[in-house]
Write a protein that binds this DNA or RNA. Structure first.
Length: 430
RNA sequence: GGAGGGAUGGCAGAGCGGACGAAUGCGACGGUCUUGAAAACCGUUGGGCCCUCACGGGUCCCGUGGGUUCGAAUCCCACUCCCUCCGCCA
């Protein structure tokens, strides 16, 4: 959520920020108008209330002194004011609800150093690591769904029987590989990040805090009977962990790592990437997230990116880092670096992590604040996060990249300790 | 799922229609005293919104939403959450 005061004090900055995203500015105009209305109404209402309060106090005094006739006169006067106050109050509420509705739908402003651009094609490739197109051999040019089926480690057909298309099931060594990947990603981050196992079903407020609601209702699974939502990412519960709290500056930054299932309806991409693991409704992901002061944010952003990259490197995958342009960053983000791994079997770059800085956008929605060590009052925090590891796409790139001429998959060293029962003999993993 | 109890400031806990943003205690912070510390004493100690360059002022917040009233932490209604017991259960 944007700061209304910023919208009031520097509307041009907000306007140009939203324009960089290609956002329609009509909503903003409407917001400015409603906000002015709201403030005028509030001022009028508060003045009336002050008068009513003072009259009521006088009534009390008069009654105690036994001057009930004078009291009755004042009561009449106050009653009349009360009627107007109620009327104003209703209009005031309407205006403030309308303001909030728009505020909840306006996206974050892109950071000044976020590259310009209208969409995907304008994203800036920051670096490419470990990629040599000519080095891939034929045995690596097999899509993961074929590799998976061949080795009996991926069973898409039966997953579809159980749950429908875009659900998948890993089996045997494939299932173990999912577990190994998650555990590796957690173990690599527990040095500084507190391990959390949060709920995966959350209330509406929790999804509003991160910016997933109200705008993206169609993307989320909703359990109507209980009015709970299945989380699309651990970002959702982790961001709300300290919701409505005021943290001490000395306790910042707070860092969290969480492994959860993630659920996405993928309503906007029906028919896209329907094969294999590229786009699925339910998947495992290890997320890292930090809450910090505005001054700490840049360094935290760098740190999360470094950690997300580190795991991809350990897994021996080719990857590139993109600096997403203003037209392509997510609704809540101010700046985002995407990590994409190269999957030789499908010959595609797969997004496996979005490392985002949300400035105070989510924190304002979640009412996450801190008390500065020097000075008074409270300030809004900054939130940042990124996937340490998102299973399906990493799993896909991994089995394609490390497929051997005999069809088995060579497991990279860092994963081996987690897979010992599967590495002996002539199984699918070597 | 059934029966009962409860929700007040950082915590504990009073207030049950008028001067209550709220007693008191604890904690925290500042000061006096002290070589230093403790004790004692004195003081300070929530957040949101609006107006103001500022000083300051107004208003709202006692789980949430509505109602009664000149006036609500206090009365009424609904909801939510928590606790205890019973049932069920991985």
């Amino acid at each position: 959520m944007l700061d209304v005061r910023l919208i009031r004090n520097d509307p041009d900055a907000v306007r140009s920020g939203l324009a960089r995203r290609g956002e329609d500015l009509a909503l903003l105009d409407r917001l400015v108008e409603l906000d002015g209305e709201h403030r005028a109404l509030t001022a009028e209402r508060d003045a009336l209330r002050a008068e009513i309060r003072s009259l009521s106090n006088q009534v009390g005094t008069l009654h105690r002194e036994g001057r009930s006739e004078e009291a009755t006169a004042l009561q009449e006067e106050s009653r009349a004011l009360g009627e107007r106050e109620r009327e104003l109050d209703v209009r005031c509420d309407e205006a403030s609800t309308a303001v909030r509705d728009i505020l909840l739908r306006l996206p974050n402003l892109p950071a000044p150093d976020c590259p310009d651009g209208a969409g995907e094609v304008d994203n800036v490739v920051v670096r490419v690591e470990g990629f040599d197109e000519s080095a891939y051999r034929d045995h690596q040019r097999v899509p993961h769904w074929e590799v998976g089926e061949e080795l009996g480690i991926l069973d898409v057909e039966r997953a579809v029987k159980l749950s429908g298309s875009m659900f998948v099931m890993y089996r045997g060594a494939g299932a173990a590989l999912v577990r190994a990947l998650c555990q590796l990603a957690i173990d690599r981050n527990v040095d500084r990040y507190e391990e959390v196992r949060p709920p995966t079903l959350v209330r509406t407020d929790t999804l509003i805090s991160t910016g997933h609601l109200p705008k993206f209702v169609d993307e989320a699974y909703h359990l109507e009977r209980d009015d709970l939502w299945a989380i699309p990412t651990a970002e959702v519960p982790l961001t709300s962990l300290h919701r409505d709290e005021i943290l001490a500056e000395g306790d910042l930054p707070r860092r969290f790592v969480a492994h959860t299932s993630c659920f996405r309806r993928e309503a906007g991409s029906a028919g896209k990437d329907t094969r294999g693991l590229l786009r699925v409704h339910e998947f495992d992901k290890v997320e890292i997230l930090a809450l910090g002061t505005p001054a700490q944010a840049a360094e935290l952003h760098r740190e999360i990116l470094e950690r997300a990259e580190g795991i991809v490197v350990e897994l021996g995958l080719a990857y590139r880092v993109l600096d997403l342009c203003a037209g392509d960053i997510g609704n809540s983000a101010a700046r985002t670096f995407d990590i994409e791994v190269y999957a030789p079997g499908v010959d595609q770059w797969l997004e496996v992590s979005s490392v985002s800085w949300f400035s105070d956008y989510q924190a304002r929605r979640a009412n996450l604040r801190f008390r500065p060590e020097s000075g008074k009052g409270t300030e809004v925090l900054h939130t940042l996060n990124g996937s340490a590891l998102a299973v399906p796409r990493v799993w896909a790139a991994l089995v394609e990249t490390h497929r051997q001429p005999d069809g088995t998959v060579l497991v990279p060293d860092p994963l081996r300790p987690y897979l010992t029962p599967y590495l002996g003999g002539d199984g699918p993993l070597r």
